[in-house]
Write a protein that binds this DNA or RNA. Structure first.
Length: 908
RNA sequence: GGGGAAGUGUCGGAAUGGGCAGACGAGCGUGACUUAGGAUCACGUGGGGCAACCCGUGCGGGUUCGAGUCCCGCCUUCCCCA
């Protein structure tokens, strides 16, 4: 049936969720994609352009609760309506390949993939926190948690986090490979988003020990700052928290954990938010210097990042700095400032006379305000400054140098600020001399009080290590590497790569999804359903409880089963799979929907027809919204890589080219939504203007990748244009018999130039997804043809070529009107099976060009000259133009710049 | 706070290997046809000036014979991340 000698083109547009009605946004995404699919077909490709429905998901259950309709019935009737609406678009969708993800013939293969991943060790079960409503006694999906206070969508009860056993897929095994985009042509934006999402960082895992010798592993990208780690922070959920918390702190810790569990990740990580945390009473030992450091818990540390514990280096990590300042924890600088800036504030009365003069003499810059000195110096001046300061400081006072060369200068000694011990000593002496600082808990807190110092107290850059025992003096560019080597030698740490990407949590505590094919056997434990027993059918008679709880948990028939291997009683897993699982492989399902339905599956089955796959895969062009950049588009890449490792496919990437369309907003500039009542209904537009006009307008009105607000007037322009095209082709013009004269050679050449120029423009724009300029090129061509129709060109061969070309170029965009005009002008069915017109560069070439003549870069003349004009002739013509003459009169021509075929610029 | 994209007439938007800014359309204006027009057709439409010309692509600099386009700094909006 398909001529396999022709090249193939698999064009795919993201499948819709069957929400009820087709939205103008669906049209905006799909119609231009269809235009391109049709274009490729005319270019001689066999084109696969399928459509289906992402049919599992939460709204179906909400409808069931609110209106008493079963999710299956609700979904299928929505699909029926949307399918009808989709057909009104006039897209070339191959409906024979339609795939609906909630049908058993589809989801048994979704389950089959689960079993394969399970066999490969890529699926595992782990405790993980989920949002849970204590009143409804159910877990909630992310979109069911509302508002700043995170309350339950249904009953308004504040949501809590609850630890549940859930299924994960090891997408992190592929993290490194997912960072490689060399085999795909995807928008830079998506590549960047995915790269950030995966978030690879290099550093070290370092083992700290609690005083009870519990190992606490932390990941750090800055092992060079280890000597500045003055405390540790664990995520409130960290498993060691309970064990390490001392009785006196237990109550406070429990209270804090409860608070933290109620917050969302975004809130917890916000840098805007005031830092919170509590000390758990326990201490750890910093393995590099054996310092005893306190252990805190704080919500800015996430269990999901790294190991859920951090070493806090307040001197060189912004969040740690803020935290330490607030809670009075020591802050010891261990990396020198790369800029070498040092500051010293000299309060009036702390120094003997002559200090300012001594500084001037030494060339150390300072400002004097109200008797106090504000000294800002560079590294080379610090030593000299300290000496001068010590010589001049009054016995009852002190001054300090901060930023670089950190030191506290007293008349009798200089104490370098180089560690916790020094910190204690400095604090004690200062408090003795100055009662105003009695409440300062740390040196840094004291310094922070001086406004002048604030910009040099903290930095997060790489630099020479200081105050770091044996590493002091190690330059910043090798520090990380050297420290890691040293840690490895001593067995207290090792090089490590950390990813922000987490394993994919696929468990959903919902009814309307593909059941996870696992049973819990009383004897054998967690066991997979045999491949042959798939699908695990979602019981159609399940009753959705009004709370929204998972109906499967209450369906006795579903719940109780036997494990065939031992014949013993077993309970089914009641979690279903994330709908992103269904959509991760739908482009394979389209090849042969519901493949081998009714036949048992096996471990070595393929979920799709291998012959179809061999011909069509992979997807050549994928179009859809950029909002899927970090979810669906990562999951589907992971899926394909896993399928490759199962031996199902022999390529690495599912979609070779990706292009994103923007979003059509409502007329008011807001997102269209039923609640706002600003939705544009495509059905109404189709009824009023016809599908071709709607398609044309969606192409013409916006930059496709950008989108923008709907403009109800703009569509009229496209409507009028198509009317003009209709009349242009069908209304009789001056007929050949009445022709007063034959067209001149020039007239014919001009018309053919229009024709071939337009072919080139439209073809180039098709390749570039520049749909708006396709329509404007066709409009301009139409305008030119309307003028030509008034002349003796009408009815000539060149005229017929022009009309035929117009219709062919129009065919992908406005398939109905193009077909109709094609038929009415006596051409053979179907226009859509015609080859795309060929562009002839010789015919498109201009004979006459407009030569722009500038004097000093300003346009002074426009000359019509032959396109092949020589440089000499062009210069001569330019210089002899009267207006040009006028502007260069009395001035010396210094230079004449000639851009062939474009302009002459006379410089005077 | 970090990263990315974008700022062009009244509006949607054209034009980037630097070379006629505002294509095409909407809107508006004038005219024609018409009993009528929210139909159709024609013409006009960045600002200033009678004109020659001058000024104009978020703001300020720079490179260049020449900058919407390249470089530096800033402002605004949107998106992503924290």
């Amino acid at each position: 049936m398909i001529d396999h000698s022709k090249p193939k083109h698999y064009a795919l547009t993201m499948l819709p969720y069957p929400s009820g009605d087709l939205h103008i946004g669906h049209w905006y995404a799909m119609a231009p994609s269809d235009v391109r699919a049709r274009y490729m077909r005319m270019r001689g490709y066999n084109v696969l352009f399928p459509m289906g429905f992402d049919a599992f998901g939460l709204p179906a259950e909400n409808a069931a609760i609110q209106r008493g309709i079963h999710p299956h019935k609700w979904t299928m009737s929505n699909i029926e309506r949307m399918r009808r609406q989709l057909k009104s678009m006039g897209a070339m969708f191959d409906w024979e390949r339609e795939a609906i993800s909630c049908l058993p013939g589809y989801y048994r293969w979704t389950q089959w993939f689960f079993l394969k991943l399970y066999d490969m060790g890529l699926a595992y079960r782990k405790k993980s926190p989920v949002d849970f409503c204590p009143k409804c006694n159910t877990t909630l999906a992310r979109e069911q948690v509302w508002g700043e206070d995170r309350h339950c969508e249904r009953c308004g009860t504040p949501v809590i986090k609850k630890e549940l056993e859930q299924w994960f897929w090891r997408i992190t095994d592929y993290a490194e490979e997912l960072l490689d985009f060399s085999k795909i042509d995807w928008p830079e934006r998506v590549v960047t988003m995915q790269t950030n999402w995966i978030g690879r960082s290099e550093g070290a895992n370092v083992t700290f020990l609690s005083e009870q010798e519990d190992p606490i592993i932390v990941f750090t990208t800055r092992p060079d700052t280890l000597w500045g780690a003055t405390f540790m922070v664990l995520a409130p959920e960290h498993p060691l928290v309970d064990k390490l918390t001392t009785p006196g702190h237990r109550e406070e810790v429990e209270e804090y954990k409860y608070q933290a569990a109620r917050q969302s990740e975004i809130e917890r990580l916000s840098t805007e938010k005031e830092k919170t945390g509590v000390f758990i009473g326990a201490y750890a030992v910093n393995p590099v210097n054996d310092e005893r450091i306190p252990i805190w818990i704080a919500d800015y540390v996430m269990m999901t990042y790294g190991t859920g514990a951090i070493m806090a280096v307040p001197s060189h990590d912004e969040r740690d700095f803020e935290f330490a300042l607030k809670f009075g924890l020591p802050i010891i600088p261990v990396i020198d400032r790369p800029d070498g800036v040092a500051k010293s504030f000299v309060m009036q009365g702390t120094m003997k006379d002559g200090f300012a003069d001594a500084l001037t003499e030494a060339g150390i810059p300072f400002e004097e305000r109200e008797g106090s000195l504000y000294v800002t110096m560079d590294r080379s001046q610090v030593e000299r400054y300290i000496a001068l300061a010590q010589a001049h400081v009054q016995p009852g006072s002190w001054i300090e140098v901060v930023g670089t060369g950190w030191a506290f200068i007293f008349a009798d000694e200089v104490i370098p600020f180089d560690g916790v011990e020094a910190e204690q000593k400095i604090l004690a002496r200062c408090k003795e001399l100055e009662p105003a600082v009695h409440d300062k808990r740390t040196v840094m807190e004291m310094l922070w009080g001086v406004e002048f110092y604030r910009d040099v107290l903290f930095h997060a850059e790489y630099g020479t290590m200081i105050n770091s025992g044996p590493f002091t003096g190690t330059p910043g560019d090798v520090a990380v590497k050297k420290v890691i080597e040293w840690l490895e030698e001593r067995g207290i740490g090792e090089f490590a790569v950390n990813y922000r990407l987490r394993d994919w949590l696929i468990s959903r505590q919902r009814y309307w999804g593909a059941p996870i094919p696992i049973v819990y056997c009383d004897k054998c434990g967690v066991v997979p359903v045999p491949y042959e027993d798939l699908p695990v059918i979602l019981p159609p008679d399940a009753v959705i409880p009004p709370t929204g709880e998972n109906a499967l948990k209450y369906h006795e028939g579903f719940l109780h089963t036997t494990w065939p291997k031992c014949g013993g009683p077993a309970t089914r897993e009641t979690d279903t799979m994330d709908t992103f699982v269904c959509s991760s492989w739908y482009h394979y399902a389209y090849l042969s929907p519901y493949y081998k339905e009714g036949e048992p599956a096996h471990a070595d089955s393929t979920p799709f027809d291998p012959d179809e796959a061999a011909y069509w895969l992979p997807v050549d062009v994928y179009t859809g919204g950029v909002e899927h950049a970090t979810m669906h588009l990562i999951y589907t890449r992971f899926f394909t890589k896993a399928m490759r490792d199962m031996g199902l496919v022999d390529f690495d990437e599912p979609m070779l080219m990706l292009r994103n369309q923007g979003i059509i907003l409502a007329e008011d500039g807001f997102r269209m939504s039923k609640s706002r009542g600003n939705v544009v209904a495509p059905d109404d537009l189709v009824e009023r203007y016809g599908a071709d006009t709607v398609r044309g307008y969606l192409m013409f009105g916006w930059r496709w990748e950008q989108g923008g607000p709907w403009d109800p007037h703009g569509i009229e322009g496209v409507y009028r244009w198509l009317h003009r095209v209709w009349n242009l082709v069908l209304e009789p013009g001056q007929s050949a018999s009445q022709r007063v004269s034959e067209p001149t050679e020039k007239e014919v050449a001009d018309l053919r130039r229009w024709t071939h120029k337009t072919i080139k423009r439209v073809t180039d724009d098709m390749e570039a997804f520049a749909f708006n300029t396709i329509i404007s090129a066709l409009m301009e061509f139409t305008n030119a043809l309307q003028k030509a129709k008034q002349t003796s060109l009408y009815g000539t061969e060149a005229w017929d070529e022009a009309i035929e070309t117009l219709l062919l170029l129009l065919a992908p965009c406005c398939p109905h009107i193009a077909e109709e005009l094609w038929a009415r002008t006596g051409r053979p069915y179907s226009i859509h099976l015609q080859p795309w017109p060929e562009y002839n560069p010789d015919l498109a070439a201009e004979e006459v060009i407009t030569l722009v003549v500038q004097v000093n870069g300003r346009v002074r003349a426009r000359l019509e000259v032959p396109a092949d004009i020589t440089e000499e002739a062009a210069r001569e013509a330019a210089l002899s133009d009267p207006n040009v003459q006028r502007h260069i009169a009395g001035k010396e021509v210094r230079k004449v710049i000639y851009v062939p075929g474009r302009l002459v610029n006379v410089v005077v």
